[in-house]
Amino acid sequence: MSGKVTISLAVNGETIEALVAPRTTLADFLRQDIQLTGTHTGCEMGVCGACLVLLDDRPVHACLMFAVQADGCAVETVEGLTHRRAIDDLQKAFHERNALQCGFCTAGMLVSAYGVLASGDELDRDSIRDALSGNYCRCTGYESIVDAIETTARLRRQHMEKEEA
């Protein structure tokens, strides 16, 4: 029983072939097997949001699935989003607004923010808070994070309006 399984998946645009134990969560696989330690684990039961990654472009908890389940999927982490410069504006807004302190929740916050900004929905402070409802932060009190996402949404909207005009 419990022999290792070969999986193939795209992580941050790179194809990864790996041999994993079925019980290895995607979070542990990312952090330990391929050293993408930007994704964190805070509860290992899907309630803190620190481990959020994009699975086929949607935020999911990397602690709530096993790496074997991601076979054939595309996974993107904060490292990948950074590398392809998909969240430059968001990171800048977080930095300027000091929307992080210890930084442990930050990758999850960015992934949630990426998801809600990509949804195309009109965002107000309540809807941003709603999008963050599963992301725990002990340091900031959330307001600065909401501010940073609100700023990013506004700048993106202005940018789009300028493009259209």
Binding site: C63, L64, F66, Q69
Partner: peptide, 26 residues
């Protein structure tokens, strides 16, 4: 069986359940 796994995986992590085989029907 595992589909979304959003309740099953925590139960496995907590060792509240420990099946010998996971059948992924997702």
């Amino acid at each position: 069986y595992i589909a979304g796994g959003q309740s099953l995986v925590p139960a496995l992590a907590l060792r509240l359940q420990a099946p010998g085989l996971l059948i992924d029907i997702a």
